[in-house]
Design a protein around this nucleic acid. Structure first.
Lengths: 331, 331
DNA sequence: TTGAAAGCGGTACCAG
DNA sequence: CTGGTACCGCTTTCAA
């Protein structure tokens, strides 16, 4: 920066002001810009953050980047935060709370303006860390009874119950469930709990359950799980899956066995992933706006940041995201 | 840090040393650790980077985070770089060179130790920026004739040609191609070029081509494209797709029309995504180790970083990644 | 509108 | 093994 200042014949401060787009005469501005170009000067963000006491980072922690669910949410966040000059520091927890804790600690070192987490399951240390940091926190994809700070999501239990009701209305009674495997995937577990709760409420049997392998649930899990379910309870009329991925795997397994979906057996998914609409038969699913969760989270973050400067007001602690059952061909 | 030092009854320097895991007596170390715990002290990364002149960032730019291809590559990078204490600064270019340029400039502000880009197509300004920065650069997913610095990838042209040869050997002659749409997706374009080159070499017609919409190519593109191809050239025997995603969409379209794949028409994909193995019929494809590209890139980065300190030696400028045609059911 | 000085929170370097 | 000092590159603050 000193070099730029010297070349432009001004002080460092003037260069700093020009770069920040603050008051400066046209002439000076021009000379400074030219000097910057000429030297290929790129300001050091670390120095700026240190000096001003505020970084331009927003930390985002997702369980898995390779799940389109979460990468869509990251996309929504990017769309809202980038125009504000904020940069995302993205971390992948791999569904492990300990890893989340490590990552939170690591991100906190960069003094992020805000930190967005996925879900409501965190270690005590993580909570303590966040509390102490004083940084705004948003929990995404869930609506905890007591958010750390803010939350943007929906009740996976309720959404799952709604799908069960849909299936029951369609006349299916012997309904099975595929998924809810890992204790680490709270959202998957909640969908399982929703299945159980609604089946009980409807007075239907709720033992036709095959739990899956590790999260993230992928399509590869669906096939074997479906095979097991068909073997153990051949009279099953419909199967609800913890995600569209496993639903797809299940449908493919049925096709391999010559079963017609939905005539021989109905299958429903969750999430409304692209594959649900494309695949044949198209998958009946619960639509959740993953990108929208990112956007709304971004908006809540921007509002919280502005509120820090006394401009505008924070969003409410909980932002509820809509979901809908989307009837398609598979159930 | 001063607070920690005061509480532990030592100097700031000693605290700094303890945190860096350098020489310190057991007693001192203990007291410092306790003070850190008690105060919930989290060191400021920006200050550390500024002072030491080196950050712990590695910048990574991918065209799209929601493509499993690239998120797998990011996973491979993470696996190798995280244990080295390096952190990823991830950016999504959306296949736009101008966006890549903006992101490169932005990442450079954080003084990354290294920067990994996808592909070999960059604006002149990007190249200049990188050159001047003096930061090691790795281009992934391609093997440019003249890499900016290092490259880890393979020839999409050659891989594509190999798939055409496979199809021809299987006896197919009237082979079509789906994809290679966007000028921005160099890799897709290269696969298209490979198709043309090999069809020509084999003396086969190469006009049965339907170009797709925007990148990233998704499964939704495959259906309509397949429909168009079937309409225009009903005598087509096999179709090669620019990616497994479009191949899947194409297969679903065939099923909707009551066509049997591969009996009525054969379909091949590219990339060996999870869906290719799961779907029915399973998709014949070109397998590329996306995660491995990330790993190898990570290793090249670590080697380059060590070489900077005079420890060990850099990897060669080009690292070739293997690919193989995987025969499955669809072709 | 511009400039000078101080200092953000760490680490390098050298001395003890 | 430990401490003091300078300084990294920028922004804040205050004065001109």
């Amino acid at each position: 920066m000193s070099d730029v200042a010297r070349l432009a014949g001004v002080s460092k401060m003037t260069v700093s002001r020009v770069m920040a787009g603050r008051s400066a005469s046209e002439a000076t501005r021009g000379r400074v810009q030219r000097a910057i170009e000429e030297l290929g000067y790129v300001a050091d963000a670390a120095a700026g953050a240190l000096s001003s006491g505020r970084s331009s980072f927003v930390a985002v922690l997702v369980p898995s980047l390779s799940s389109s669910n979460f990468s869509d949410t990251v996309g929504g966040l990017t769309a809202v935060l980038e125009p504000q000059g904020l940069e995302l520091l993205i971390g992948d927890t791999d569904y492990l709370p300990e890893r989340e804790e490590r990552l939170v600690r690591q991100m906190l070192r960069h003094q992020p303006r805000c930190i967005a987490l996925t879900g409501s399951q965190h270690t005590d240390a993580t909570r303590a860390l966040l509390q102490r940091s004083g940084v705004p926190v948003v929990e995404m994809w869930d609506l905890p009874t007591e958010p750390i700070d803010m939350a943007v999501g929906f009740s996976n239990v309720s959404a799952s119950r709604e799908m069960v009701r849909y299936l029951a209305h369609k006349g299916y009674q012997r309904i099975g469930f595929l998924g809810g495997a890992s204790e680490l995937d709270r959202r998957g577990l909640d969908r399982f709990k929703g299945y159980q709760a609604e089946m009980k409420a409807l007075g239907l049997e709720r033992h036709r359950v095959v739990r899956l392998g590790e999260s993230p649930v992928t399509m590869s899990h669906g096939g074997p799980a479906m095979a097991e379910l068909l073997e153990r309870w051949p009279d099953t009329q419909a199967v609800m899956c913890v995600s569209d991925m496993s639903a797809f795997g299940a449908i493919m397994e049925c096709q391999r066995r010559g079963l017609n979906v939905p005539r021989d057996i109905a299958i429903a998914g969750f999430g409304n992933f692209e594959i649900a609409a494309c695949c044949h038969p198209a998958i009946t699913t619960v639509s959740v706006d993953a990108y929208g969760i990112g956007q709304r989270t971004g908006e809540a973050i921007v509002a919280a940041l502005l509120a820090e400067d006394g401009e505008g007001t924070r969003h409410p602690a909980k932002t509820r995201i809509q979901y809908t059952v989307v009837p398609r061909e598979s159930a």
